[in-house]
Every structure is written in C-alpha cells, then in structure tokens.
Design a protein around this nucleic acid. Sequence first.
DNA 1: TCTGAAAACACCGCTCA
DNA 2: TGAGCGGTGTTTTCAGA
Lengths: 160, 160
Amino acid sequence: MPDSVVLDPVDLEILRLLQNDARTTYRDLAAAVGVAPSTCLDRVARLRRSGVILGHALRMDPAKLGRPLEALLSVQVRPHRRELIGPFVERVRALPESRALFHLTGPDDYLVHVAVAGTADLQRLVLDEFTSRREVARVETRLIFQQWTCGPMLPPAATA
Amino acid sequence: MPDSVVLDPVDLEILRLLQNDARTTYRDLAAAVGVAPSTCLDRVARLRRSGVILGHALRMDPAKLGRPLEALLSVQVRPHRRELIGPFVERVRALPESRALFHLTGPDDYLVHVAVAGTADLQRLVLDEFTSRREVARVETRLIFQQWTCGPMLPPAATA
DNA sequence: TCTGAAAACACCGCTCA
DNA sequence: TGAGCGGTGTTTTCAGA
C-alpha cells in the first residue's frame, strides 16, 4: 500500500461531501458529483481499501454527556523509556476521561485531551491518574475555552 | 434544550456501538442491544435531536492525503482582544492545513493542530501564516510523533 | 415499544466505451 | 480499465396497535 494515494477530482469531491455528512447516500453522492451511484460505491470502496478512509465516527457533544469541561494536560514522563511509556500510554487511553493522546517533540512528552464533569473531577484526575504515578515528572493543565474542528482536510495542491 | 441529557442503558449501548462503527445498521444495532430496529431508529433520532449526536464524520488518514507530518502550534496573540482574535480564528480555520483549533487558558492563547506535507511546508506555514502576522506574538512548534484517539467517551458514573 | 408492510437503498452481476 | 445499467436482497422508515 503506497504512502500517498492518487486522487482524482471525483474522489476529492466525494471526500468533501462525506466529511460534511458521512451518511450521505450513494444516490445523492452520485447526483452531486455527476457520476453513477455504482461508480460512487466503487470509489468509496477503493478509498476504504487504500486506507484514505479509516472509518466512520460518531461526533458527540461531551457537554451533553455530562462532561462540560475540557482540558489539555502536558505530561513529562521521566525517564522517557519504552518500558515506561508503553504502559503509560495504555493507561491514559483506557481512562474514560481521555479524548485524545499525542506523543510530541519538545520538553513535554505527551499531551492529553480530556473531558470531565467539572474542576473537582479534573483535579481528581490530575492527582490520582497522573501526578501520583512515579513515571510522571510534571503535569501542566490548561483549560479549553472553545474549540473548532477545521476542514475539509484535503491534499495540498488539490487537482482541480 | 438541557445542558445534559438523561441517557438510559439502551442509549449508552447504542452510542458505544456506533462509536466503533457509525455505519452499523439499525438491524444489527437492535440485535446487539436487544430491542426492535424501529426502536433503535427512534433512539438515534432522539439522540440527534437532543444534540448528543452532532453528526457522522469520516475519519481519514492525513498521510494518505499527502500530509504525513502533523504538528501542534502554540500561538500567543497580543493584544488578546476580541477585534484581533476573531479574524485570527477565522483565518486559521480556513487554512487547509488546520485540523483543529483550541482557545486555551495559560500563557499561550491558542493551540493549532496542523497536517502538512513535510518540514518545508511546516516552515512555510509558520512563517507565512503565523509569525508574519502582527497580532501573533509568539509561535512554538511541536511535532506529533504519534497520536491516539480514545474512547468511548461516555457519561461519568454510567447509569447501569 | 413492537409488528409488519412499503419504499428506498446498497450492491451484485453484466454490458459498453 | 473504468463507467453505467438493471435486478435482487437488505435496510430503513412509517403506519398502527
């Protein structure tokens, strides 16, 4: 499987439309793009096989699920060795509060995006799940005032 | 619309299953949860109306789209006033490289998650779109080695 | 919330350029 | 090789109870 995939304008338009609503029917997709529904089906199947489309995810509102407060935790893991960071990553991923986890360059090794019920819950999370761990050298907490998802993420220099 | 929504075990199970694969049919959903397909349809429609489900998104591989390098940019906007940050946010959201944008507490006002073709593209992005702007006081760039999405994000203390 | 029926859809073969 | 067409099984969706 090649690292990058060749996408023609039809593929790009399909991806753009599916990003707005991933449940768009192939019939509507076909009408919008200007090809036959079966061609759309074929294109989407190919995009899935080639790994461009990883899957279909549900976008949910954390606040509506009782987690109105979101934060980013910058975490320094010391010493930064495989035998420590492997379990650390798995533990963080298993937390119900975790939304995303990044391994980064720079002084802070990890960034954890969490959603919690409130400041008390956040404090508990930081103290019990992070700073209490021996391998966690430092945690810096920043609250998220507002967030935006951007997009559509399409290839640089799109073939128009 | 209330800030938080009351979810029964059926709702939670539906959300859990749809998060793994948002294209699961109502028939399969019904079989897994133990209710009729029409009930599933009704529940999902209600979850959509109540705002718990925001939509169905396509998960795509940035690398396959010619953007194999991802980074987080910490941006300080000075002075941090509405008439400056409004346009700043809109400009960043409109960049094809932007994946997500956060307004944060702490010394750095914004965090921008970007996907680019390579280090040269990243340098161009930082210089031309950020540091060249008068309102941008400082940009700190950290590369993303690896990232994980976590989940399922469900209510704290789930009603069992 | 379920049952059942009707409409819409996905998805497979095939044919044609 | 890739696009388009039609048939079939499945899924969705809407009554009514």
